[in-house]
Design a protein around this nucleic acid. Structure first.
Lengths: 341, 341
DNA sequence: ATGAAAGCGCTAACAC
DNA sequence: GTGTTAGCGCTTTCAT
């Protein structure tokens, strides 16, 4: 490994000068800089980022903690986050907790403040106050995809108006004329997706439609779970003309279940989800869904995190950014019910 | 930030002793160790991994370089790799090149040997000899998912017998009685998936079936590309009774295309892929495919990398591990052709 | 504009 | 067993 000192020796200057060339540039005479630069080139010098981090007291990597990257929602977030981080000169470490709080805690104590200069946490099993405690001793933590814009978590966060997303879905179904609607409510780790469900219910209630209890199912957040739940839902309440799922994975599972029950989507039963993951437009029929714009949320989260890192320590009331407003994407999985009521 | 020295002061020992408690354990008297341990607890000490890396001359993070994590194949690999790394006491940094060689190079020079103690590279645009050069000056590099078991790349690697995977797919279709078969050949970055295609062709040739040139399409590696290509394929050669795709994404796109053309899968046209990504069993009809066991390949790759790191430097002939043999997964997307010939 | 020196937090000889 | 010392590769005052 070629070190800064070796470069210095070769260029017949001292380490400090090389360091200056690498950063300030101004304070070093052009011809000296040139000598240093060629020494760097000739020796193939690459700075040791660990040493730099130690000396500067800050590292250039960020951590992203999530439950399980195999959930198709996450890769899109990771992609956007990594890009934003890279653009800002940071690396991104992915911390997969396997939906296990203990693993999450271990990551937090090991990584935050040493390897990673800041961390973004996506819905996790770890309690908020635990996260706060961790943020107090370690590095800044940004909670992303916070589902409750109305109540700040006590941690810097990026909130998404999922209630509004649910409401948009409800409005869409109502406008199409649906009255018998079933709900699939996902249980993303870190708790039920109830903001979405409540936003949906509120619009329904305003239209004087009270969903049948049998028409609500709470389940894990996968295609397979959506499939199973939908089968059960349709057997509980066969008269449904539409299904609202709190996320696209469930909605896709539901579409498959309906197909296997011999029910046409959307003619027999409409299906709508939330998120707009890539898969949503790749599936047939293409899924109508409420997009939350994952990429821009990821970008916002990284930006907020970096801002916090640069600013220094905690505020009395941590900032809460709003993600972009949810956006209805009408595709092929919804249409008016057979006999419009 | 609480430092080792502060812990030492509190426990009324010296830094070396604390360090010993943290590692050797044996050489320190139990009661002293106890004092140190409580000091650690009371102060909430957490070791600075950067400082440790600098002092030890080796870090505890690994890097995984890939084209674009939004490709549904990668998350499964990342998940398994992260787990294997974690089990071995390493962290995993994800380096997304956005399918851009320049970005990949930048990552390699910045990360390899400083932040990351070793790196795993998945099919990338960077030339092999460039990787070799990089491995020579930086950290060990393991090439994973190498598609040509018969010719070692000159870099440690984990090879997968994709030709055999193609052959298994061919055999399956032949046994079902198919004779008119179209091919969708993907272009994963880093080159055409031709080992798979050739394995397939060889079996066909042995059965005296020469595929029509019009029945082979080469395309990008996404569902959408598979969709488009399949539409074109069926219009070129409408008589096809089966389609072989070199990966599941293409196969899934093909199934959707067939559906939109009003052709039943598998009754009118059978479809088979390679890989067995999660999605393969989640689509309807569930996709028949040849599984390569991504998780175990990822695990092998990490293990090999760690082994290389611990052993020290390069061998004359770098090791090539074989991934597990591919495995036919018969599901619902294949059946005998309508009029078995 | 450049050099000298101290120190980031930790590890690893080696001495006691 | 425990302390002393030096040093990992870099940055950053502070002199010159």
């Amino acid at each position: 490994m070629v070190t800064l000192t070796e470069v210095a020796r070769r260029a017949r200057v001292t380490a400090a000068t090389v360091s200056n060339v690498l950063r300030n540039r101004e304070k070093v005479r052009p011809e000296t800089a040139e000598r240093v630069l060629s020494a760097i080139r000739e020796l193939g010098y690459r700075p040791n980022l660990n040493a730099r981090a130690l000396a500067e007291g800050r590292s250039s990597t960020l951590a992203l903690m999530l439950g399980n990257i195999a959930n198709p929602f996450y890769p899109e977030f990771v992609l956007a986050a990594e890009r934003a981080a890279r653009r800002a000169g940071y690396f991104l470490m992915v911390c997969n907790t396997d939906d296990d709080a203990e693993t999450g805690r271990a990551y937090l104590t090991q990584v935050a403040g040493t390897l990673a200069e800041g961390v973004i946490v996506l819905n996790t099993d770890i309690e908020i106050n635990e996260l706060c405690a961790s943020a107090a001793i370690g590095a800044p933590i940004v909670l992303s995809l916070w589902e409750h814009p109305e109540s700040p978590p006590g941690l810097p966060c990026v909130a998404v108006d999922f209630a509004r997303a649910g409401a948009l879905a409800a409005t869409h179904l109502l406008e199409l004329g649906h009255r018998n609607i079933g709900m699939l409510v996902g249980d993303g780790c870190g708790g039920l997706q109830d903001a979405r469900a409540n936003g949906f219910r509120e619009v329904m209630r305003a239209a004087r439609i009270e969903p049948d209890a049998a028409a609500v199912l709470q389940i894990r957040d996968t295609i397979d779970a959506g499939y199973e739940a939908c089968i059960q839902l349709m057997s509980n309440t066969p008269g449904l003309t539409a299904i609202f799922a709190t996320n696209d994975l469930l909605a896709i599972g539901a579409m498959q279940a309906l197909a296997s029950l011999g029910r046409q989507v959307p003619e027999d039963v409409s299906v709508i989800g939330i998120t707009d993951i890539q898969l949503a437009h790749q599936v047939r029929p293409a899924l109508t869904t409420v997009a939350i714009n994952t990429s821009s949320i990821a970008g916002l989260s990284i930006d907020l995190l970096i801002q916090l890192m640069e600013k220094g320590r905690v505020d009395a009331s941590p900032p809460m950014l709003q993600g972009p407003p949810p956006n209805l994407m009408v595709r092929q999985s919804t249409c008016p019910p057979r006999r419009a009521g």
